[in-house]
């Protein structure tokens, strides 16, 4: 079966992000870019499905600028078969809706039986694209999946989705969109052979026009980025444990009114 995995390039969480001279954008100088961690769970799951079935194709797709090609290389090094790069300046300010529309166009061209996404991309932290993509396609979807098994003839997938207080297990007819939650699997590291092999794999570049996208006005726009309001300076409570604890409880009660 054919599986499409949506992967996004994001700044490494450990790197500092600063607002650039354009107040709507971050300063990208010095940023280390990584594959969004949840998308690694999605890639891993796609590879496991293929390996378990002994056949199939895993296609990685990203929407992003030139540098996002690195993310596709990482996906290919992990074991994806080929990749598609939606790379068009017209999509530079894509919100989740615009992204979903573009990815849906790719899905329609590729016609996979399954699309895997991450629970959320850790830059915009929206957690919306997977579900929006499913809606545009008119496919069923399950978010935050913790487990997944596909039946022998690839007609349905059984998933466990994480909800408050438990796990809901559903049988879903394919094609469908699933979004990966941490706990689904443990992503593999690319091997040296994988990294070398990735260089020979195909990355296809596509433009908005190749996807037949007409309206690419974002539905949601950033008007400004802001630094976090500074927290008031904290206080280390000195003294031996007994006294410090008493003072802490008093402060929580009387000053902070938190208890």
């Amino acid at each position: 079966m054919k599986i499409l995995v949506a992967v996004k390039q994001v700044p490494d969480t450990a790197t500092q992000v600063k607002i650039s001279s354009d107040p709507k954008a971050i300063d990208t100088a010095g940023i280390t870019w990584i594959v969004s961690p949840y998308d690694e769970f999605a890639i891993e799951e796609a590879l496991r499905i293929k390996e378990k079935r002994g056949q199939g194709e895993v296609v990685a797709v990203t929407l992003g600028p030139d540098r996002a090609k690195e993310t596709l290389r990482s996906a290919l090094a992990m074991g994806c078969d080929r990749a598609i790069h939606v790379n068009d300046p017209a999509l530079a300010n894509a919100d989740t809706m615009t992204t979903a529309r573009a990815l849906a166009a790719v899905v329609k061209q590729e016609a996979p039986q399954l699309v895997l996404c991450g629970r959320q991309a850790i830059d915009d932290d929206a957690g919306a694209v997977g579900a929006q993509l499913a809606e545009v396609l008119g496919w069923p979807c399950a978010s935050w999946i913790m487990e997944e098994t596909i039946d022998a003839d690839a007609k349905t997938v059984r998933v466990g989705r994480q909800v408050e207080g438990g796990l809901e297990v559903f049988d879903i007819p394919l094609p469908a969109v699933l979004s990966a939650q941490k706990g689904l699997n443990e992503p593999r590291y690319p091997t040296l052979k994988g990294i070398m092999g990735a260089k020979k794999k195909e990355i296809k570049d596509v433009k908005a026009s190749d996807l037949g996208l007409s309206s690419i006005t974002p539905e949601l726009s950033i008007t400004a980025l802001e630094a976090l309001p500074a927290r008031p300076p904290g206080r280390i409570i000195p003294g031996d444990v007994k006294d410090a604890v008493k003072e802490l409880v008093r402060s929580l009660r009387e000053d902070a009114k938190a208890i």
């Binding site: 919100d95 989740t96 809706m97 979903a100 932290d125 929206a126 957690g127 919306a128 694209v129 997977g130 579900a131 929006q132 993509l133 499913a134 809606e135 545009v136 979807c141 978010s143 935050w144 989705r161 994480q162 909800v163 408050e164 974002p218 539905e219 949601l220």
Partner: peptide, 23 residues
Amino acid sequence: VTSRLRELMARLAAKLGVGLAAD
């Protein structure tokens, strides 16, 4: 923001063709 309304709102936005400000 709850597990099901997070997904519902994303799908609803797509169905209506409007933007969603999440979280």
